[in-house]
């Protein structure tokens, strides 16, 4: 019994001690890949820095912070995601812009070449309106007057992409940056008319210590966003 308690205490203490000097970055699904590349760049420049990246839908990230998750930098796919944040945070800095596109599987039947080809017979996926890509979809539906029905709502944009890539869904609404690296024989993508844009933003939580501020500036100044298809903010 007492040996068990000691082991438990060691595991607990070990878990606490190892995370003290770590910088924690929470990043929206659509920006997960570019941020991991930027963090690699950062760690090459500052080998001692310890950065932990947490990827999820913007709404999940905001909820995690409000429930007390230790997060230093928060990157969401639009500024509106931060509206419901009740924790203390800096004013958001824009990182890059993105736009909504329609990702289509090649087997979609009847074929889809524009958003107007979408019918009730197609399985169509999109984001929940609590996340930025879902808000963007709502905005596009209002601006275009489209009455397209979304069959399955996903909590982040990468789940939407996965459903179409796997062929379970015929089409899905995602960001332009989500489709640039996809295999063009299985899927294709179509810009939507009128085009709708969102700007990804970064905010620091609480009062950032020097090393967090250093990473924040590094991310904001990184040229990687352009490489991954994000537009100039």
């Amino acid at each position: 019994m007492s040996r068990l308690a000691i082991v438990a205490a060691l595991i607990f203490l070990g878990g606490c001690g190892s995370t003290e000097d770590q910088i924690r970055v929470s990043v929206a699904s659509s920006l997960g890949e570019v941020l991991e590349v930027i963090v690699d760049d950062y760690q090459r420049e500052y080998p001692d820095a310890r950065v932990e990246v947490n990827v999820a839908g913007s709404a999940t990230l905001v909820r995690q912070v409000d429930e007390g998750a230790p997060v230093d930098l928060l990157i969401t796919a639009d500024a509106a995601a931060l509206d419901s944040l009740s924790a203390d945070s800096s004013s958001p800095t824009e990182l890059g812009t993105n736009e909504l596109v329609l990702l289509v599987h090649r087997d979609a039947d009847p074929p889809i070449t524009t958003a107007e080809d979408l019918t009730d017979d197609h399985l169509i996926v999109g984001c929940d309106r609590v996340v930025p890509c879902g808000r963007l979809l709502d905005r596009w539906r209002t601006e275009s007057g489209s009455d397209v029905e979304i069959d399955s709502v996903e909590s982040n944009v990468r789940q939407v992409r996965a459903r179409v890539v796997d062929g379970e869904a015929d089409a899905g609404f995602v960001y332009r940056t989500d489709v640039l690296d996809l295999d063009a024989t299985e899927t294709s993508w179509i810009p939507v008319e009128p085009s709708v844009e969102a700007a990804a933003v970064l905010a620091s939580i609480g009062d950032p210590p020097a090393e967090v501020a250093r990473l924040r500036d590094f991310v904001v100044e990184s040229a990687r966003f352009g490489e991954f298809g994000f537009g100039e903010p």
């Binding site: 996926v125 929940d128 069959d151 399955s152 709502v153 996903e154 379970e168």
Partner: peptide
Amino acid sequence: AGNVEGAT
């Protein structure tokens, strides 16, 4: 089965 209102 996805997250489909009224079905799944």
